[in-house]
Design a protein around this nucleic acid. Sequence first.
DNA 1: ATTAATGCAAATTCTTTGCACTAAA
DNA 2: TTTAGTGCAAAGAATTTGCATTAAT
Lengths: 148, 148
Amino acid sequence: MAKHTNLSTVIQRMEDRGYRVTAPRLAVLAAAADCGDQFSAEELDQRLPRVGRATVFRTLKLLVEMDVLCRVLLDDGSLRYRWSRRGHHHHLVCNECGAVQDFTACDVADLVSELTHRTNFTVEGHWLEVYGRCGTCAHAAPALAALP
Amino acid sequence: MAKHTNLSTVIQRMEDRGYRVTAPRLAVLAAAADCGDQFSAEELDQRLPRVGRATVFRTLKLLVEMDVLCRVLLDDGSLRYRWSRRGHHHHLVCNECGAVQDFTACDVADLVSELTHRTNFTVEGHWLEVYGRCGTCAHAAPALAALP
DNA sequence: ATTAATGCAAATTCTTTGCACTAAA
DNA sequence: TTTAGTGCAAAGAATTTGCATTAAT
């Protein structure tokens, strides 16, 4: 599991919420931890031949609900999971190697309040993903596009 | 089609790009126009019993490529299509009724340049969706959550 | 004991592909 | 004519559901 998350904390939280701490759930958690930074449901399922696919999905959903994991949308539309730093954050996704970095310096708040004033929307949340190339990949092949 | 887009412009662009302007494509275009602001592939397909599902999808992909349509990601993860205002813009999506509003006042540029300096990422693009309640729905049921 | 959680396989949903056929150019 | 585009039906992916069974409490 390494640095990503403290499993016992997750287990604690699971108990607190009244969810049973079962063997399959622990297995999913452990496998997710082994996957490192980010992974797909598929990858996880393959690592867990003894756990049913349905359970993998059910557990993932649970963990997302619990804010343990969060979903990352890749630019190609595919979905992956990754350990969530609790609290509001966004992702810097490398289009080349898929590396994901969090960032919290989210200045969208200003934008949001402006939107609230300018429109009749009540803003409840937002999702921001920034795509590009990580340092390594940027060196390998120079970027083509500019800022959006 | 109404205000969304000028179909003849789309057709023009299609020809310019060397794509054939076929009856099924026009049908999809017309149906999309009739759907109004936004729609799913499914909805579109249902309106077009004479056009194969595959063609609907192929045409949608084409139109997205051509920047005629863009994809909207709903908070529940489902995908819809909507007429694209050309150029950079984002979406204000109502969690209740699904209404989508564009907004272009995108101050993410500052954030992006900051990210560029602070990390070793080369930013190539970003995707921002703001969720909340539109005026109508906000009145019906008061919002629960605050800004992110 | 109770009842939440599981595994399996079947069912869904959404989208793509293969291929013989049709129609733009 | 030539070849892009189509329809169909089948194949795929990704995820969910139904239900009898298992295991946590």
